[in-house]
């Protein structure tokens, strides 16, 4: 192999990569939060809403989970303008990520809700709590605690999937890398560095999740 590596071009363009990484972080964090909010409502509707709504949520979850994210991005970004809805790339990316992320998150949160024993809900009713109060104060906190780990792995997958929105040229990390690549033709160097940044991001996110876990769900004291 007679190839000499040139990282100089990548170093010169480091600001672009860092800007891209920053957008990836913001895009991912925002879509994680929004997905979780959608998922809490979705999971509530799925487990105790009216029958027709349960069906709608189930169909949504199944359809999203059984089609590729790339195709979902295309449908949203290129398809919605047919209804007169024009999106800039970053908004389209966010919508696609939330729609995709919440389908997976609904299933996870629902599993958590179903793991809570029914006796707890009955006890809450016996204490005079409404259905919504019982859900918000008794079921949801325990459910989220129970599924915190799978939720976090799903969120990291969501962050990694955000690289796919580069195809509609949202200017996140992968798109920035492609930009530099097409200008300098240093494809291998650029993508190696970019993959390294993603690795740092996914490790970073799991560290943050670990801290959040300790903050939100302190270990129950032994009594």
């Amino acid at each position: 192999m007679d190839y000499s590596f040139h990282f100089t071009d990548v170093w010169i363009a480091r600001d672009e990569l860092l800007d891209g990484a920053w957008l990836t972080i913001r895009l991912s964090a925002l879509s994680m939060v929004l997905s979780l909010i959608v998922a809490v409502f979705g999971a509530f509707a799925r487990s105790s809403g009216p029958k027709w709504l349960q069906g709608v949520v189930a169909a949504y979850v199944e359809f999203i989970r059984n089609t590729p994210f790339l195709v979902q991005v295309f449908v949203i970004f290129f398809g919605l303008p047919a209804f007169g809805i024009r999106l800039d790339a970053n908004t389209g990316a966010l919508i696609a990520m939330v729609l995709n992320g919440s389908a997976y998150t609904i299933e996870i949160v629902r599993a958590g809700i179903e793991a809570i024993s029914h006796g707890q809900v009955e006890a809450a009713y016996a204490l005079g709590l409404h259905r919504l109060q019982a859900f918000r104060k008794i079921v949801l906190p325990q459910a989220l605690r129970a599924v915190f780990a799978p939720l976090c792995s799903q969120f990291i997958l969501l962050m990694l999937n955000s690289s796919i929105v580069s195809v509609i040229s949202a200017d996140e990390l992968t798109a920035a890398a492609q930009d530099i690549q097409s200008r300098t033709f240093r494809s291998f160097e650029v993508y190696i560095v970019t993959i390294g940044i993603y690795l740092v991001l996914s490790v970073g996110f799991s560290v943050v999740f670990g801290m959040l876990n300790r903050l939100c769900f302190p270990k129950l004291e032994a009594r």
Binding site: I156, L160, N161, S162, S163, I164, S166, T174, A177, S187, F188, Y191, I192, T194, I195, Y198, L199, S202, V203
Partner: peptide
């Protein structure tokens, strides 16, 4: 598992 599949594919392709 900690990096995007898209970039892994790029690396194989361009590598």
């Amino acid at each position: 598992q900690g990096t995007p599949l898209l970039l892994q594919l790029f690396l194989v392709f361009f590598g």
